[in-house]
């Protein structure tokens, strides 16, 4: 089961294919507003996950760590380039 916004035909899973009206889940809420899981036909599977506070906190920490790593890598590459260029200029390389 994969949470998805659209089925294999590219149509919005939250819309009824025949009428074009927005689907509602069994609680009456619009399907676009729930975070349930959809089966392969784009139909809600009936399972709805909400993140626990621990999960949300852990995900946020991981996101921050990934962001810092990527920014760090970019800075490192930039600084390497600057230093290599400076060294080459100082050594008279063309």
């Amino acid at each position: 089961m994969v949470p998805s916004e659209s089925d294999n035909n590219g149509t919005d899973a939250s819309q009824d294919a025949a009428s074009g009206e927005e689907r509602k889940d069994s609680s009456g809420a619009p399907a676009s507003q729930n975070f349930g899981f959809y089966n392969r036909e784009g139909v809600p599977s009936g399972e709805h996950y909400t993140l626990s506070p621990e999960e949300e906190a852990a995900r946020k920490k991981r996101n921050v760590a990934i962001a810092l790593s990527l920014v760090g890598f970019m800075v490192v590459v930039f600084l390497i380039t600057v230093v290599q260029l400076s060294n080459n200029i100082a050594n008279g390389a063309g």
Partner: peptide, 26 residues
């Protein structure tokens, strides 16, 4: 087939994503 009309809703708290910290990856 499971349809919006007959789908029963199971609300599950947690268990969908990892709780691993950056420290675990380190």
């Amino acid at each position: 087939m499971n349809t919006p009309e007959n789908a029963s809703v199971h609300r599950v708290k947690g268990g969908a994503v990892s709780t691993a910290s950056p420290r675990d990856y380190f």
